[in-house]
Design a protein around this nucleic acid. Structure first.
Lengths: 347, 347
DNA sequence: GTTAGCACTCTCTTTTGTCGAGTGCTAATT
DNA sequence: AATTAGCACTCGACAAAAGAGAGTGCTAAC
């Protein structure tokens, strides 16, 4: 037995209906709502086949059918058609960016908020990788005898800072000297380049300032390997409480405690997605018991053709994939675009 | 009819029991669990009186009694005894701060996380007010022709930054000149002082650099009135899902959507609390329908005797006030202390 | 290959009945 | 006058029973 055109139609109908009602779908319903030109009985036969093929399943005898994970997968891969955004949504997005484009952090945060607002699911976004961005400025500020702050400004507009120990004797003038050398040497270079090879050159240059040499190297190391490289924004979590599958408190709890752990979240966003395009991960494909009833739609955003971050939506497996995929795609392009504009000539 | 010693005992018993069981408590239960030396019948009479006085209420006939808001208030004001923290908790707190005391932001975030972890309620903390902290360093970095970043380092270790427009012709050297003047003039002064009167002096000094004069003033204004002055950290939200009163999804939803709105949260923390000591706000005292079944325990933390932020716990009205008040008090002192140490000599 | 008809299954909702916790009142006791 | 025992009564919680409805699978007819 194989998938044929009518089975596809029926599967499509089941998924469409289930997505909007969250109730198991029966043969009668399909015959009524979707005009397939056949009677419920025929549809029953097709459904029986689809079940055998594993695309749908029955919660219990005498209930309608529900799409299985395999069914959703088939739908996402072969059946679904992208939907265009409505005027209204385009409007929301455009308005959302006005007055808010001051730096990368803000753009990213705003994108995240818009994404959850529009989709009504939870949204996640991971901030741009810094290792591809260039060093714009670095500054050492003595905060306290023995303590200084390293401040690094990146071409993305991101600012990293870190408190470090310095020998008691060092004063602000020393630090200015070091800052000066660093800036002269490293400005405009990307972080990964700096990390890779330039430490030696600096070493040479600073040999004039023997007394602070070791310190300088130390600074470089500590300053560049700042805490977390990237940050994950999470938004609209309470949107998912509106989904009927989360009327059960226990599920909410397990999900929330997952989302509370940033590394797990990162994993959800970053695991083995192909670069480019929108990727959909359904239920157990996420490899996490806590989200076996959830799906994630992820896309990568770019700058200068380089992938620099991910943007994603988390919702129940019964999510409106066609719609969400379109939104995510749209937002990704929008974001890449906005970033591109921000950086015209910055690099 | 007036409150007397035995009524107090009975009220106390009801509250204690209700706090731990979340079930309406009956006269028998009290007679059994608490040794008041009288029979259930007597207790019933007392309870009847307490109800008339408004300290307790009955969910329905034939159920036990539950403390009313007034009852909790009486308990908090007159009855409760502070509990000391156990060894174990002191331990958690002490360990929590090791390796984490790099700057104010981190300390605050960590305090917040510890607070929710220990109390098992949601915790909130508002970052130190910046207007009392001193300017440590300011730097202008040209990011792009026509765009620069103002970076301000405060004595608290907080860093504020803001992207601003500058005239196309301005180059980094100009910006360095301005930065230099600003630093020479303003370093060590508190933000509110700077805001208040010093703008004129700067104006004078910079008159040598006519061409960038207007810009400089502009910078000062924009740079100092950075986005939000303070940030609110919110932690352990999903702790409250463990409370039986939140087994109802609707309540969770309304609460979460409240917590999602930062200004409301700020309101919860900041409204008219007396400075010093720990304040408890119960149920409708919070003036918000969404949290009429919740209470907030708030304390102010200080630096140099100056109040600079708030720290609070949000839980159901049926929370263990004695315990939470002690923890909050302890954490507040701890935080003030840690900050004090960090700033020894910084100011 | 498709459809109508029908018996059967299973969940969901409503109804009914029972149990028990808890109260309030009264009368007896201290 | 305060306390207590006794008892009738109330009301929610829970379980069992009954009924309704949706949906299926099978068979036989088209």
């Amino acid at each position: 037995m194989k998938m044929d055109a009518r089975k596809q139609q029926v599967l499509m109908a089941i998924i469409m209906d289930y997505i909007s009602t969250a109730e198991p779908v029966g043969s009668r319903t399909i015959a009524r709502k979707f005009d397939l030109g056949v009677s419920p009985a025929t549809i029953r036969n097709e459904m029986s086949d689809l079940e055998e093929l594993g695309y749908i399943e029955q919660p219990h005898t005498s209930a309608g059918r529900v799409p299985s994970q395999k069914g959703y997968r088939y739908y996402v891969d072969f059946l679904m058609k992208k939907k265009d955004l409505s005027r209204k949504e385009e409007e929301i997005i455009r308005k959302g960016y006005v007055n808010k484009v001051k730096d990368v952090g803000q753009v990213v945060a705003q994108t995240n908020s818009l994404l959850s607002q529009i989709t009504n699911y939870a949204s996640m976004i991971i901030t741009p990788r810094t290792d591809m961005s260039a060093l714009k400025h670095m500054q050492l500020v003595l905060m306290n005898p023995g303590q200084a702050m390293v401040i690094v400004v990146l071409s993305t507009g991101a600012i990293k800072h870190n408190m470090i120990e310095v020998p008691e004797g060092v004063n602000q003038t020393d630090l200015d000297t070091i800052s000066g050398v660093f800036n002269a040497r490293l400005q405009g270079l990307t972080i990964d380049k700096i990390k890779m090879g330039l430490i030696k050159e600096i070493y040479f240059e600073l040999s004039k300032h023997k007394n602070i040499l070791d310190l300088a190297v130390h600074l470089l190391e500590e300053g560049l390997s700042m805490e977390k490289e990237d940050k994950i924004y999470l938004g609209g979590v309470f949107n998912i409480l509106n989904q009927p599958e989360f009327h059960n408190i226990e599920k909410v709890k397990t999900l929330l405690s997952l989302l509370d752990q940033e590394n797990l979240l990162r994993n959800l966003l970053e695991r083995d997605y192909k670069e480019g395009g929108v990727t959909v991960r359904i239920g157990s494909e996420l490899n996490r018991e806590e989200v076996k009833d959830c799906s994630v739609v992820v896309a990568t955003y770019h700058l200068d053709g380089q992938p620099i971050g991910k943007i994603g939506v988390l919702g129940p497996t019964r999510m409106d994939y066609a719609w969400v995929v379109s939104v995510v795609e749209h937002m990704t392009l929008n974001l890449s675009d906005t970033l591109e504009k921000m950086f015209k000539g910055w690099r």
